Amino acid sequence: MTYASIPTPSPHPPVPGRVLRSPIGLAHAVTALLGVVMVADLLIVAASLNMRAMMGRVASGGTVGFDDGELSRADYAMAGSVVLYGIAMLATAVVFVVWFHRVRQNAEVFAPGALSRAPGWAIACWFIPVANLWIPRSIAADMLWAAQPEPRSRAPRHRGLLNAWWGAWVWAIVFDRYASRTYDDAQGVEAVRDAAGLVAVSAGFDLLAALLAILFVRRLTAAQHEKALAGSAAPGR
């Protein structure tokens, strides 16, 4: 879907042949997939707390009624929820990057030549180790700025939401690596119990990051959609 041609005022010449394309469908897909990620996070929390409770009972000597099958099921629940999360995250990442590139291309129409990085960076930035922890955020800030009504202020709307999402996402990544490594290296009942608790907390952080990502995707998509409609409806521009 493309919008009508919108001659938005800009001190920079427009890019020939570039038109606005609606990001709404992709935003719905990203939102739905992030919802699946959140469900997977909840399953990880449940499986981790179950494992923690079982290890706590074993550590306290309360092994009456336990059998190897119950412990195996708890372990399978941990592994299965993590696999589901991995699949959901992979699918989400692919669609999210497509959406991210779409809104970056739209931003070029709203503010041709005025943004700090070329549209191709909206894809490439995610695959650069270490730098992918801050370059995508700067691109997102540019897109928020470009989506503002004219005249644009230096501080884009919803920057607080952007910062909250990005901070939560980076923290969730760092904490997840710590929790996962601790759980994988855990030896002994008490170590597994404590590590399972860390995994549950990590999934909670990831759930928060996914929720904030949904809000950011919806806000930026809505801002671009509103600007596109306002521009196409404005006569004599």
Rank of each mutant, 00 (worst) to 15 (best):
P136A: 12
L90G: 15
M89S: 12
V64C: 00
S22H: 12
R159A: 11
A88C: 08
S48H: 02
D176N: 15
R159N: 06
G197E: 03
A77S: 14
A168Q: 03
I214V: 14
R137V: 10
P9V: 13
A107V: 06
I44W: 00
P7D: 11
E226D: 15
G231D: 09
R159E: 13
A124C: 07
I139E: 02
H101E: 13
S10Y: 02
I123R: 13
R237I: 13
S72H: 04
Q148S: 04
S72M: 05
F205V: 07
A46C: 09
L115W: 00
L212R: 03
A77W: 06
D194W: 09
R177L: 09
W165M: 11
P156E: 02
V174D: 03
A164N: 05
I123K: 10
F110K: 00
S81P: 00
D142P: 07
L212A: 05
Y3P: 03
R137D: 09
N106R: 07
A223Y: 02
G231Q: 04
V174N: 03
V170R: 04
L211R: 08
F100C: 02
A124M: 10
R181D: 14
S22V: 08
G61F: 04
A233S: 15
A53G: 15
D68G: 10
Y76E: 14
I24A: 10
V192D: 01
R104T: 13
G188I: 12
Y178N: 06
Q224V: 03
G25Q: 07
R157I: 07
R104C: 06
Y76S: 13
W99H: 07
P149T: 05
F205A: 10
F175Q: 03
L161N: 05
P119D: 07
S48D: 05
R18V: 10
L90Y: 07
R237A: 14
V98D: 08
G113H: 11
P7I: 03
G160C: 13
N50R: 12
P136C: 12
R152T: 11
G231M: 05
V36F: 02
R18N: 06
L161D: 04
L229D: 11
E226M: 09
P9M: 04
I24S: 09
T92M: 01
A195S: 14
D184Q: 08
T182I: 01
F216S: 03
V30Q: 00
I123Q: 02
L220Y: 10
D176G: 15
L211E: 01
L42Q: 04
L26Q: 07
A164H: 02
D194S: 14
L133Y: 09
V39K: 00
G17C: 08
F127H: 10
A209K: 01
E108V: 05
S153R: 10
P23K: 04
R52I: 04
A131R: 11
I139W: 01
M38G: 13
A223F: 06
M78Q: 11
A223C: 07
V37K: 00
V82C: 10
G17L: 08
G17W: 08
V37W: 01
P112Y: 12
A118M: 13
G204A: 07
S138N: 12
G236M: 08
V45G: 09
G69N: 10
A111E: 14
F175Y: 15
P136K: 12
T2N: 13
P151K: 14
W165H: 09
A91G: 15
L211M: 13
A93S: 15
